[in-house]
Computed example of a mutant assay.
Amino acid sequence: MSRRRIGFWYRLAAVVAKPPLVVFFKRDWRGMEHIPADGGFITVVNHNSYLDPLSYAHFQYNTGRVPRFLAKVALFKAGAVGSFMRGAGQIPVYRESADAVGAFRAAVEAINDGECVAFYPEGTLTRDPHMWPMEGKTGAARVALLTKAPVIPVAQWGANLAVPPYARPKEFRFLPRKTLTVQAGPPVDLSEFYGCEPTADVLRAVTDTLMDALTVQLAEIRGEPVPVERYTHRSRAAERRTDGEPDRDTPARAAEAPGRTEETARKAEEGEKA
Rank of each mutant, 00 (worst) to 15 (best):
W9K: 00
S49D: 05
A238S: 12
R30K: 11
E224Y: 11
P176V: 03
R266F: 14
W9P: 05
K137W: 01
M32T: 12
L145A: 04
P251Q: 10
A118T: 01
L21F: 09
V45Y: 00
T209N: 00
R173I: 12
T181Q: 01
R30S: 09
V16M: 05
A257M: 10
S55K: 03
A162H: 07
A80Q: 02
G82C: 08
R230A: 14
K77I: 06
G195A: 03
A144E: 09
T181S: 08
L161R: 03
E256H: 05
R177C: 07
G87T: 09
G39V: 02
T232P: 00
T264H: 15
Y166V: 07
V154Q: 10
V228D: 15
A162Q: 08
W157F: 02
M1N: 11
V163H: 10
W132N: 00
V101L: 08
I6G: 02
F174S: 09
G102I: 15
G39P: 02
G158P: 04
E256P: 00
W9I: 04
V15S: 08
V81R: 06
R230E: 14
G39F: 01
L161M: 05
D38L: 05
Q183V: 13
L190V: 02
Y10E: 15
P225S: 01
G114A: 14
V93M: 09
F193C: 03
R11F: 11
E122K: 10
S83Y: 14
G139F: 11
P92F: 13
H130Q: 14
T207M: 03
P246G: 04
T43G: 06
T179F: 08
N112G: 15
R234W: 06
G223M: 06
Y120R: 03
R86S: 13
E269L: 15
P36T: 09
P67I: 12
